[in-house]
Design a protein around this nucleic acid. Structure first.
Lengths: 193, 193
DNA sequence: CTCATTTCTTACCCTACATCAAGGCGCCAG
DNA sequence: CTGGCGCCTTGATGTAGGGTAAGAAATGAG
């Protein structure tokens, strides 16, 4: 389990054995079954995860209608968490669950203070990670504001070509912000050409 | 000019005189006239800003139609920049200009390395700032995906009650992702009740 | 294998918002 | 004061995508 994390850090961040041990201390390996929840929207006691195998997602149930909206997919080698709420001890803004059976390394609120002690390379690394997420989020917002559902679907195909086969369509629809019916129509239309 | 920045840091971050001096070194005061551009979408040489007075905005011209989409408004005491592109020397993802005549403190790519040298309190502070933006962005994305234009307008009123009077409606529309015509109709409808 | 449940597709109609077009109201320059 | 130019409003019409419903296909459980 931990080997995958070490491999992930290769070429990204120079790390001593002691540092890696310290990180292992605050990470708990866990198998998560498909549909199993890792975080409940609204709960205070909770975790984030590094995905070793399988795929998780974070999502909110926003509407009175109970409609789901997916914020992020996290396949292998992705981090997923609600940092904002976690660090402040606030109720989680969204839920996290497994889209496929998965192997993850869970971390709690103590993960971030630990990073502080591991030196500025670590801080910089995770800061960069956050910046990348932010940039991705901005691009997605713009796309949601300015592009049609079909254009967004094509962008999604480009961005996550491997995920498309692994995810049920209703989840892609929930990510794009359209109904499964609409996505079905879009795919039909694209197939015609 | 710098006094406003010092006041801003009060209660947020303990800071020595020497640290403040170091920050001053990398900040350039500037007056920006309404409509004046601080950053051009696509340019590589560029700045971010701390807004002392007035209001800036970041926006993209996404469509072939030349339609503007506003990512962020930055009134007094806000930071605005394209960190992601700036740190990597990439072309800016969006433009930044002044919505009102403004006084700002400009910083360049050298700002972030400096923060590293100022100790982990500083890093933590700006990390938190980034997390807050991220959380706000996520909320906005969800809102864009799940709420009607009217609901988003009401959220905007709640979130930025003072800004509403200062901004032309077409900019609020560009922020919400609707046409000025639609926003006008929404306001009319709300006024009736 | 078989039945049940979930997921996907297709069809029909409806709604929120866009687009287009015209007119009114500031606001500033001369 | 007057003409021009943004900005906001209002109306008429168009359209992307939603809601609903029903059937087909896939997936899963016993």
């Amino acid at each position: 389990m931990y080997e995958r994390l070490r491999a992930y850090f290769q070429n990204k961040l120079a790390m001593s054995e002691a540092q890696f041990e310290a990180i292992k201390q605050v990470l708990t390996p866990k198998s998560v079954r498909k549909h199993e929840l890792v975080v409940w929207q609204g709960e205070v006691e909770r975790h984030g995860a590094f995905v070793v195998k399988g795929c998780l997602r974070s999502y909110v149930v926003a509407d009175k209608k109970g409609k789901e909206h997916i914020i992020q997919f996290a396949p292998e080698n992705w981090w997923i968490s609600d940092q904002h709420s976690m660090l402040r001890g606030l109720p989680a803004m969204f839920s996290i669950d497994a889209v496929e059976d998965a192997e993850v390394l869970l971390f709690g609120p103590d993960f971030f203070p630990l990073l502080q002690t591991l030196g500025s390379d670590f801080q910089a690394f995770f800061h960069t990670l956050l910046q990348n997420s932010m940039a991705a989020m901005q691009r997605r917002l713009i796309s949601t504001l300015s592009a049609t559902a079909e254009e967004r679907y094509l962008e999604f195909l480009q961005m996550y070509p491997t995920l498309v086969q692994r995810l049920p369509q209703r989840m892609i629809a929930a990510y794009l912000g359209v109904t499964p019916e609409s996505l079905s129509r879009i795919r039909k239309e694209l197939a015609r050409s």
